[in-house]
Amino acid sequence: MLLYDHPQVYLVLAAFLLAVGIYGLLRRRTLIGMLISGELIFAAASLNIMTIQRFISPDPVAGQIFVLFIMGLAAAEVAIALSIIIAIYRNYRSIQAKELSELKG
């Protein structure tokens, strides 16, 4: 059997994407970097669901439509998050997560 016919290959790749996204979420110090890491975690979830619908699920259409909805929600999330980031940049002149500590006592 060929390599691209095994679900384990895709699942391990999705686990890798999730780990890289968590690593970036912990390491990035700017808000846009964190947003990009969050997109990688979304991609990991999409790849997982696509693998399950291709190899395991008896209803492949449900998985594909779910991934389609994930993409729509990710687009909405990016629009909202970027407008918040731009509003923060106008007020603070910086989008580093360290600078946004005005509420800290």
Partner: peptide
């Protein structure tokens, strides 16, 4: 269409409006 065409282009617009480089 959505990720490369919409999400990445939107993030690039935000990069142009802010100065987001890592310190």
């Amino acid at each position: 269409l959505i990720y490369v065409g919409a999400v990445c282009v939107t993030i690039i617009f935000a990069v142009m409006l802010a100065e987001p480089d890592e310190p």
